[in-house]
């Protein structure tokens, strides 16, 4: 059921999306038909998917200031 509350929420999300897009840096230019670029992109996607399969508890923080 569509309520006024839901309509207000949709409007807020829509505005937020527009602001986020406006603030995002422009995407870098991409060469069309570049097999090496497509291979690199696919490899990157594969990597992200492989890492995403690791069970990661919420409280684990990144090693951003890495010391062995």
């Amino acid at each position: 059921m569509v309520t006024r509350r839901k309509l207000a929420l949709l409007a807020t999300v829509g505005v937020a999306a527009k602001v986020a897009l406006a603030q995002a840096p422009p995407a870098p230019a991409r060469a069309e038909g570049d097999a090496d670029l497509e291979t690199a992109r696919q490899q990157a996607r594969n990597n992200f998917q492989a890492i995403a399969r690791v069970k990661l508890p919420r409280n684990v923080e990144p090693v951003t200031t890495f010391k062995a």
Partner: peptide, 27 residues
């Protein structure tokens, strides 16, 4: 050529993916 493509693609690495990798690195 593969290296050039790799560096160009690297610019598109989402921060959240880098941070996920660094969180798994803690494990």
């Amino acid at each position: 050529k593969r290296q050039i493509a790799g560096f160009k693609t690297a610019l598109d690495t989402p921060a959240v993916e880098y941070l996920r990798a660094m969180r798994v690195r803690t494990l």
